[in-house]
Amino acid sequence: MTMIDNIGTVDRALRVAVGLGLIAASLFGLIGLWGWIGVVPLLTGTLKFCPLYRAVGITTND
């Protein structure tokens, strides 16, 4: 299975921002350890690939 980019520019920027925000909030004690779930959108945004999008046939790639 190859990873073909399926995340567009706006989607990517939002994922990275949300991921970093959740991780930062967790590090600063604003939210609990669940904030580390921000790793998921951070990775998918960085890699420009979302396995869930592929499974359901969605793409936001420009």
Rank of each mutant, 00 (worst) to 15 (best):
T2L: 10
M3I: 01
D5H: 13
D5M: 09
D5N: 14
D5K: 14
N6D: 04
N6A: 02
N6H: 06
N6P: 12
I7N: 02
I7R: 04
G8P: 14
G8C: 07
V10T: 14
D11Q: 11
D11F: 01
R12D: 07
L14T: 08
R15T: 05
R15P: 11
V16P: 02
A17W: 10
V18W: 11
V18I: 15
V18L: 15
V18A: 14
G19P: 09
L20C: 15
L20Y: 05
G21M: 01
G21S: 03
G21F: 03
L22F: 08
L22K: 03
I23H: 02
I23R: 03
I23S: 01
A24Q: 07
A24K: 03
A24Y: 11
A25F: 09
A25R: 00
A25M: 13
S26H: 04
S26R: 02
L27I: 11
L27G: 04
F28E: 01
F28R: 08
F28L: 13
L30C: 02
L30D: 01
L33D: 10
W34V: 12
W34K: 00
W34D: 06
W36D: 01
I37K: 03
G38T: 10
G38N: 04
V39M: 15
V39N: 03
P41C: 06
P41V: 06
L43I: 13
G45H: 06
G45R: 03
T46Y: 14
T46R: 05
T46P: 01
T46A: 14
L47K: 05
K48N: 13
K48A: 13
F49P: 07
F49W: 14
P51A: 08
P51H: 05
L52C: 11
L52V: 15
L52N: 09
Y53M: 09
Y53I: 04
R54D: 15
A55E: 11
A55I: 11
A55H: 14
V56I: 14
V56N: 03
V56Q: 10
G57K: 09
T59V: 12
N61G: 02
